[in-house]
Design a protein around this nucleic acid. Sequence first.
DNA 1: TATGCAACACACAAAATTGTAAGTAATGGC
DNA 2: GCCATTACTTACAATTTTGTGTGTTGCATA
Lengths: 121, 121
Amino acid sequence: MAKRKETSTNHINREKISGVCGVAHAIDILAGRWKLFILYKLVNRTLRFSELKEHIPNITDRMLTLHLQELEAEGLVSRTVYAEVPPRVEYSLTEIAARLIPVWDQLNEWGHQHRNSRLQR
Amino acid sequence: MAKRKETSTNHINREKISGVCGVAHAIDILAGRWKLFILYKLVNRTLRFSELKEHIPNITDRMLTLHLQELEAEGLVSRTVYAEVPPRVEYSLTEIAARLIPVWDQLNEWGHQHRNSRLQR
DNA sequence: TATGCAACACACAAAATTGTAAGTAATGGC
DNA sequence: GCCATTACTTACAATTTTGTGTGTTGCATA
């Protein structure tokens, strides 16, 4: 999550695969532990750092910060800083992140189907 | 990938999140480095271990084995062993994995859109 | 002057994933 | 007997992700 070693085989494989396949690329940038949770909370509303923290049980400052930074770097979340003390920073979805929402619905249904199918064993 | 420590905070958070959210669950089981590649290669056909290896550049025996085992454990891939020597093992998609395909198409398009939008910076 | 707040940063540790480099088993052909 | 073949396994190392705990900043209020 922090810095990645750009010469590692791992990194090279990652780039090569998600450079070719859109699905792999999408999953790659959505796969952090808390990322979907964060994005989901931001659907249709803007929240500040502390509000996200309240909405997401068990997340720590550090994890929220890291994931928000990556989401911002990937252009999925926009960050607005207000020059106040104590600081106020607001996060919201970008346009391209919002375009994910209809896909989510289907993936969500598939996920539930899959989970249910496993419970029957 | 090997064994996970079931008492770790990480593991508990994973379970809690993907137990509630279908998307998180889906992404969780699809997020291995080579998983999508493997699944993609199996669409509409059955392949044996060595064929998969040929189709997927740079993958190692170990990675292919591990990912196939997880995919099988998640019910996305079915494994058929033929009692021959040298061994022959064939892999194919399960019905629930096949249900992913239409979702892939959309996620794929989103992934490409997102990647292109990044290139313009 | 001391304290609290919000949104981080930093150092470090633990856990999980990925990669590398060896084996291994059973059998048919030489 | 010796070797080649296929689908793995094992031991280990490197990398990446996640978690824990503490420190920082600048201003307002007590």
